[in-house]
């Protein structure tokens, strides 16, 4: 019996006249790893940003851990505490040291004593393999190191769902692997993950489900095996041929 942690039912969203999400249905089980791909502008980032309410949807229902996302700020805060997010541009806080970046939310959101929060921060820095950078500022780190700090920062809140919004798109090629390795490790530990990425090697390694989106719709959802070897829709085939054979 698997436990459903995220449900989207007939979710619709518009930016003014632009219909960015169209009747999205999705359900995610605990521990599931879902990789979402699709051309730019297809709504994949918008969809995962709706899950922690960085964007508001206008129609339909989004339920996370049994709590429905509405305008109620209490529910939003509750969900954000349990849902971590990693951004394409890292979005580290440049005026704080690496250690302070990670311990900030435990101290202010969970009201944890500073010392305990810093110990937790150090343990996550060790997990992403850069404990020696704790005292530095984000501007002094490489892109790959910054993204690993961003992952540690999210993990320090002890979330049970992690959202990744193109985590490697802003990185130099030689730094992509160090970030993906951390994400693979996280997947092996059983974290529920929704990952927007075009790293198809990563997708084949960790994904339970592949989702292909185009023009605001989920066009295809399948296991990686089916998705890569026997895609049903022509649009998916075209996309895969472009992304795999360039």
């Amino acid at each position: 019996m698997t436990e459903q942690v995220i449900q989207l039912e007939k979710v619709n969203k518009w930016y003014d006249d632009f219909h960015v999400l169209k009747d999205i249905d999705l359900s995610v089980d605990k521990g599931q790893k879902i990789v979402i791909c699709g051309p730019s502008g297809s709504g994949k980032s918008t969809m995962i940003r709706c899950i922690n309410r960085l964007e508001a949807h206008q129609e339909g229902k989004i339920v996370v851990h049994g709590t429905e996302l509405t305008n109620d700020l209490k529910n939003i805060d509750l969900i954000r505490k349990n849902v971590g997010m990693v951004f394409q541009q890292f979005n580290l806080f440049p005026h704080l040291s690496v250690l302070d970046n990670i311990s900030l939310a435990p101290i202010w959101v969970k009201k944890m004593p500073k010392k305990e929060a810093e110990e937790i921060a150090m343990s996550y820095l060790e997990k992403v393999k850069i404990p020696e950078q704790a005292e530095k500022f984000p501007g002094q780190l490489s892109g790959g190191q910054q993204q690993r700090v961003a992952i540690a920062r999210s993990l320090a809140m002890n979330p049970d769902i992690m959202l990744f919004d193109e985590p490697t798109s802003a990185l130099d090629p030689e730094m992509i692997k160090e970030v993906l390795d951390v994400m693979i490790q996280l997947a092996e530990e059983g974290m529920t993950m929704l990952v927007v990425t075009h790293e198809m090697g990563f997708a084949k390694t960790v994904a339970d489900q592949m989702i292909f989106m185009d023009e605001g719709r989920i066009v295809e959802q399948a296991t990686p095996d089916e998705f890569f070897n026997n895609p049903k829709s022509d649009r998916t085939k075209l996309f895969l041929s472009q992304i795999l054979n360039h």
Binding site: D77, G84, Q89, N91, F93, A105, W108, V109, R153
Partner: peptide, 15 residues
């Protein structure tokens, strides 16, 4: 200040 700063703070649960 880039918009991502506020988004990152909010995604961590800060008010």
């Amino acid at each position: 200040i880039p918009k991502g700063q506020l988004e990152a703070a909010q995604s961590l649960g800060l008010t």
